[in-house]
Nucleic acid binder design. Structure first.
Lengths: 228, 228
DNA sequence: GCTTTTTTGTACTGTCTCGCATAAATTAGC
DNA sequence: GCTAATTTATGCGAGACAGTACAAAAAAGC
């Protein structure tokens, strides 16, 4: 994917660019991720990407354009990750466990830098003043709900959860779990605690018998549910 | 409460202040609420409060101090509201319903200005760069968890939920619901949809039979759970 | 009426910020 | 080698920003 973007560089007329657009976008996202949109200056972005301001403008437009592009990139990556995860999972429980595990890895919970979810940590502050950010965040949440509702609906069709369960409502609770993981990761709650939270939510969503058989979850399976 | 703060003004030596400290704090909070911490300038705050910068500094310290004071105020008000709500509620279902209703009223979901939760909308962006904001947000979430765990634990003792339920885990899911309401309110999701979301979460938390008997909730009781 | 005390209003300073203008650098085409 | 095309580098200028100094204003004490 990196090569595909750098190969058309060959045959171009002028001075070759010294940056890779996608990795520059990733570094810009990291800067926004840490300090938010308004808290990140163009100097910060220039330092983070190794580019200078005119190159930034030529490549991505102004600060707002750049931020929106980092949001789009983040969304695309997240969706690709979720889709791939879905293909590898047999049951709803299995998928949701991997889904939250993947989110926590992205959020770096309790690790060196706890950064939380990029969009949930930075977009809400901007959503009231910037219609584009507002629209993005709104659509992003709606998309997550729809995706999870689809997954849960299929699981219900396979009989994995009660036929009386409403996939749409359960999906919103699943998204709620993602949101709380996003915020808690941001303040450095240790990952094993967040895994336990996710496991409890999964038990509630998948219903009835919590953990029917012990699954080989990560390392020592957290501290498990105290009761039951 | 307003009088108690303005009465000791009597008998003071110099020129009387033309602002009420608490209402000025409320207006400052509204400014931060709308545009976030970094997105709000001192000029914005001066315009919002009707004060000029020197008065702001004398009253609340610098911008960061002022923001932290608005966060503290918000937390105190929220806790007082929750405590009072708890005293008026008989069952866990009833309390949670009122709890989320109160939150949605504060978040102004779908109304003229959708603003979401003050701390969830503005603090995460600042939490990585400002240790005090980080600590506040972390402690705030922990406090909500603990409060709800206490409420749920008492409900379990009264036999309202299954004895096998873990109050701490259920409380985290209840907080998760609050978090998702906070974010969704920010992007203007209509209130009746959020009430339905909250109702679904309550059904999951309180377990087994969703809405054992129709309670006289607000107006026409939302659109209810589609299935079952 | 005068002083003391506290708040208000204006204005100032130095820094940061964004966005762009302009020139230097580096490549391909011929 | 020369020209055209594209990117990089320096830096400029107008404005926003945070924080403060200083004087005017408004009250109480005497």
């Amino acid at each position: 994917m990196v090569q595909k973007k750098s190969s058309p560089q060959q045959g171009r007329r002028g001075r070759p660019r010294q940056y890779d657009p996608d990795s520059a976008l990733a570094r810009a996202a990291a800067a926004f991720w840490k300090n938010g949109y308004a808290g990140t200056s163009l100097d910060d972005l220039a330092a983070a990407t190794g580019m200078n301001r005119p190159s930034l403008y030529a490549a991505f437009g102004d600060k707002r354009d750049l931020y929106l592009k980092t949001l789009e990139r983040y969304q695309q990556q997240s969706r690709a990750l979720s889709a791939q995860l879905l293909a590898d999972s047999a049951t709803l429980r299995e998928f949701l466990t991997r889904f939250y595990d993947g989110a926590l890895e992205l959020y770096r919970a309790g690790e060196a830098d706890a950064r939380g979810c990029f969009s949930i940590s930075t977009a809400p502050a901007q959503a009231t003043s910037d219609p584009a950010v507002h629209a993005f965040l709104s659509e992003s949440i709606r998309g997550t709900d729809a995706f999870l509702a689809d997954v849960i609906g299929n699981a219900r069709d396979r009989g994995e959860i009660a036929a009386s369960g409403d996939p749409s409502a359960l999906a919103q609770v699943a998204t709620a779990t993602l949101h709380t993981l996003a915020v808690r990761s941001r303040v450095g709650v240790p990952r094993h605690q967040l895994k336990a939270l996710a496991a409890a939510a999964i038990d509630l969503i998948c219903g009835t018998a919590p953990r029917q058989r012990p699954r080989p979850a990560g390392k020592r399976g957290g501290n498990g549910p105290p009761a039951r």
